[in-house]
Amino acid sequence: MGNPYDPYGQQPGYGQQQPGYGQQQPGYGQPPAQPGYGQPPAQPGYGQPPAQPGYGQPPAQPGYGQPAAQPGYGQPPAAPPAYGAQPAPAPAQPAYQEVHHHHYGSTGQLAQWGSRAGSFIIDYLIAIVPFFVLWLLGNLLASAGSGAAVLGALFMIIGIAIWIGVFLWICYQEGTTGQSIGKRQMGTRLIGAQTGQPIGFGMAVARKLAHILDGAVCYLGYLWPLWDERRQTFADKICNTLVVRS
């Protein structure tokens, strides 16, 4: 039987008791004993940092049944994509668009001065021709004698009534649809500069009355759209309206 104190002798055989606490550790070159089944691995001493994984080795994964590391405070967990779902595309960058401070209708093109003048002439003739004819007949009858003077006055009253009725009808058409007969024939439309919609009957009447300022100084207001950036007359500027192509 060998000497049990000989360090170069035989090691304890199978089934023999391993050295206990405080006994001699395994010799040089021999791996340390692994912990048994169900025993936790040895923890590092107080003040000693835990062993870091070696170079090129992945960090330790959580054990079976242990939850994975949660995201930081205030960060919501990333939702996994549904099965078969495509990843959400990146939000499209808004294309550069020119900013308009005013609505210019569906086409965005202001009416030319010639189209505006043409529609004004058509509407003016519709209103003034019946009035002028009846007024002229009334004057002729009034100068014929006392008996025809009553009939002449009646003709003039009818002419004035027709003129007022046509005037209000044109205002109604422009206020509700944006187009009178003249504007419809010339392909133009009256709209509000801020809304891009018809301005209503009351505002259309106010705009017609504001045309008095257009003709006050040598009809300068009617010519103002020739060089104005928004092609507005004085009445358009007062009522904040635009005439656009329909």
Rank of each mutant, 00 (worst) to 15 (best):
Q48N: 06
Y96N: 09
A69M: 11
G108T: 02
Y55Q: 07
Q61S: 12
P81T: 07
Q112Y: 14
G54V: 06
P89G: 04
P26H: 05
Q112R: 14
Y83S: 01
A69D: 07
N3H: 12
Y55D: 04
S180W: 04
L151P: 10
L110M: 03
N139A: 14
R245K: 15
G38R: 03
P94Q: 07
R231C: 08
P130Y: 08
Q109Y: 15
P31R: 11
L125V: 12
H211C: 10
N3K: 10
D214E: 07
P7F: 05
A206I: 12
S143H: 14
A90C: 04
P91L: 05
G2R: 13
V99P: 07
G74I: 02
T241I: 05
G165C: 08
A161H: 02
P4V: 07
I158K: 01
N139P: 01
G56M: 06
A204S: 15
A204W: 03
K183D: 02
I158C: 04
A33R: 14
P26K: 04
A210C: 14
Q185A: 13
S115D: 13
P19H: 10
F201Q: 01
P59Q: 09
Q66G: 01
G15Y: 03
G105N: 00
G65E: 00
Q75P: 06
Q39E: 06
L154Y: 14
Q43W: 10
A33M: 09
P35Q: 03
T107R: 12
I170H: 10
Q75L: 10
Y124V: 12
Y46F: 13
L209P: 06
G108C: 00
G152P: 04
P62K: 06
H101M: 13
A95C: 08
P80K: 05
D123F: 02
Q173V: 05
P7W: 03
S115C: 08
R245M: 15
Q30R: 09
G36L: 04
L137Q: 12
L137T: 13
Q66E: 10
Q61F: 10
A142L: 10
A216D: 08
L223S: 03
P32A: 12
Y28D: 00
Y83Q: 09
G215I: 12
P71C: 05
Y37L: 11
L125Q: 03
A90Q: 13
P89A: 09
P35C: 00
Y124K: 11
Q61G: 07
Y21C: 02
Y14P: 13
L242W: 04
Q16H: 11
F131C: 11
D214T: 10
L168G: 01
